[in-house]
Design a binder for these strands. Structure first.
Lengths: 204, 204
DNA sequence: CGAAAAATGGACCAGCAAGTCCAGACTGGC
DNA sequence: GCCAGTCTGGACTTGCTGGTCCATTTTTCG
């Protein structure tokens, strides 16, 4: 992924990606030019093309990967340890907090749409992110099952997929409306569904 | 909304919007120029600006409204009559069918991102769509409750919000990965949750 | 019919932003 | 210290695209 012979080169490349991510968050991909990125990162045009020979698209893809990595990182350590109801709620709070802080803007969504579904790389990044995310959720549900907190008959993968969809949709809606109600509803209802599926009453 | 004195004018305007929607679906907003739209709709540059004086953004906004209207229309008549489990399942199938047919592309999402959150109009369109969509779902849940099919203690609005988020996220994921698994999982789990909340067993 | 308003065609303009290029500075191994 | 490879600077080119303008045709309506 990081192709740069010298340490200095790698540092510059990283600086470009991080700076570009900042600018893109602020202005959106539609209104961000290479000159904006150049200005922000204190680099020159030739450097941009030196590290991303294929041009803007390649740079955007690198930023997309950068952002994708952050998505799961920002949910840690909660996402990796979903073995009790308390931990699930801590994760829930972390997700809400993360996206409320991020505000009305979706780095990945924008980048993905710009680079387009045509791009082989863009789709791969998103697909892989979703795969990992869902894997974490499924692991969490299995941990609950191991601890006897949910019924063993529960379809783990389907439930994880539904929960992931809920979070994703909640975030999407929040981007559009500025309101986190749906995200919270999806998370709370999803967790409640897990509880209910255990045969316990829905109420806490 | 439709400002055109003569019938011919209105027809041309509509032709532009519909044609633009087609082109945008095929090429994505990022790679669509006014010339593409002009070519597809058999119009001239001056017509585009005659009917959309504010330029491209205004046209994109009109297309967004056009697409938003279709979203709910395509779910009818099922969405308007969610008063039994059968009707819910018919709706579920209609949604899946609609989005699988649409394929890996989100007219609204793209347009929204292009016009940007800065635009006052774009956000209004999406917000209103979500509001109406959720209202329909909530009505459906209330109908179930009236018919004694779900527990009266259920938080209708929150459940509707969660379901909407699930559908939205399922669609989003499908756009990115080309796989409708998550959409189906969200729908099925959401409906199952309604059933479970009624105190009935989760299984059909 | 005739004039005013609306609709249409398409040439033209201007700015912008991606991408090119080459000259020069640094750096790291020998 | 020297040479090859790497990194950096920034001016320049070029194509595209949104937007303007005006001439011409068509429609409406009294």
């Amino acid at each position: 992924m990081t192709d740069a012979p010298t340490a200095k080169g790698r540092a510059t490349r990283a600086r470009i990606v991080e700076g570009a991510a900042e600018v893109l968050r602020e202005q959106g991909v539609a209104h961000t030019t290479l000159d904006d990125i150049r200005g922000r990162t204190g680099t020159s045009k030739s450097q941009l093309f030196h590290y991303f020979p294929a041009g803007k698209d390649e740079l955007l893809l690198a930023v997309a990967q950068f952002e994708a990595d952050r998505v799961l990182e920002d949910q840690q350590p909660h996402l990796g340890r979903l073995d009790s109801w308390e931990s699930w709620h801590r994760w829930r709070d972390a997700v809400v907090e993360r996206y409320e802080r991020q505000g009305d803007h979706c780095p990945l969504g924008t980048l993905f749409l710009q680079v387009g579904r045509s791009s082989p790389g863009a789709r791969a990044i998103v697909t892989e992110l979703m795969r990992q995310w869902q894997r974490h959720l499924a692991s969490g549900i299995r941990a609950l099952r191991t601890n006897g907190l949910v019924a063993s008959a529960l379809d783990v993968d389907r439930t994880a997929a539904a929960l992931l969809a809920g979070v994703q949709g909640g975030v999407t809606i929040m981007m559009s409306t500025g309101d986190s109600t749906h995200l919270k509803a999806a998370l709370d209802t999803g967790i409640e569904h897990l509880r209910t599926a255990a045969g316990e009453p829905a109420r806490t």
